[in-house]
Simulated assay, not measured.
Amino acid sequence: MTGKTHIIGGVAASLAFAQITNYEPAILLGAGVIGSLIPDICHGSSKIGRALPILSKLINGLFGHRTFTHSLLFLVIIAVLLHNFMPIEAVSAGLLVGMASHIVLDMATKRGVKLLFPLRWNVRFPLTATTGGPSEYLVFALLSLFSVYFGYGLLFSL
């Protein structure tokens, strides 16, 4: 998936999560967008990879793309670090929701992800989308509709 699809995925997931929690929706949303980009730190051409090129090259050299940073192990490590060092729970929750949305979206591509890293198994959905292709545009459109739906629900539940 492209960066814009990951961002709208983070928006949709954060707004949906805000429906079932008492966290401040604006904080969840901002952190969710940032979290939706974090797993691609392993790819030098990604938005976050271009922002942090040295870290991106290091992680890619150690693990490759869509391995460690797209795994449950990575999510657990980040969750533990956030729990111990992030005083604002809504930021932690938003980052993790955004990261999870990224991983789920990449599971919908032909290549899939190494969800159970360090095991070498690729995990992907039976139906996949081609990155940058018409099927990704459909995913983007659906996530946009979900974002409007959940955002509307939040707006009128206040």
Rank of each mutant, 00 (worst) to 15 (best):
G35R: 00
S56T: 01
V11N: 00
I41G: 00
L72I: 15
Y149F: 12
G64A: 10
P126T: 06
V33P: 04
A31S: 07
V123L: 13
L119P: 00
V123Y: 13
Y149M: 02
G153W: 09
P39F: 08
G30C: 07
N22Y: 13
L119R: 14
N122F: 12
I78T: 08
G3D: 04
K110I: 10
S101I: 10
A31P: 04
S56G: 05
S92Y: 03
S157V: 08
I78D: 01
L73E: 05
P118V: 10
V33L: 13
G132P: 09
V104M: 13
G153L: 15
E89K: 05
S157R: 15
L145T: 13
V97W: 06
A129C: 14
I59Q: 02
G112W: 07
S101W: 13
L143C: 08
A31T: 03
G133I: 11
K4L: 11
V113N: 03
E24M: 11
L81D: 01
I7P: 03
T130K: 12
L58N: 02
A26I: 12
I7N: 03
P25F: 04
K110Q: 11
H102E: 06
L37C: 02
H70A: 04
F63D: 06
G133E: 05
S135D: 07
G30Q: 08
Q19P: 05
G132L: 10
L105Q: 11
L155R: 09
P53I: 04
S14W: 09
G35F: 06
M107T: 11
V148K: 02
A90H: 01
L115G: 02
G30D: 03
G44T: 08
L52K: 04
K4A: 12
L55N: 03
